[in-house]
Amino acid sequence: MSIEIKVNGETRQVEPGVSVAALLAQLGIEPRHLAVEHNGEFIGEDEFAAATLSAGDRLEIVRFVGGG
């Protein structure tokens, strides 16, 4: 049984209760310099492991790399 969530506006199937940290690993996104909003609320990098995803959740992930 998988659940449906939205990541950067795109629908994805994930395991129920998966953590943000685990999802980032699945997506191959290095968990550094990220601005992540879970259902419109910012979560810090130290909260990725504890934040779990439920059906219908929205996740926005912005990754910053250096250069300016």
Binding site: H33, A35, F42, F64
Partner: peptide
């Protein structure tokens, strides 16, 4: 317009909050 990625992230979080 920062160079450092942590500073970019921090400004984004600070302005959103």
């Amino acid at each position: 317009c920062f160079d450092d990625p942590a500073a970019k992230r921090d400004l984004t979080v600070a302005m959103r909050r």
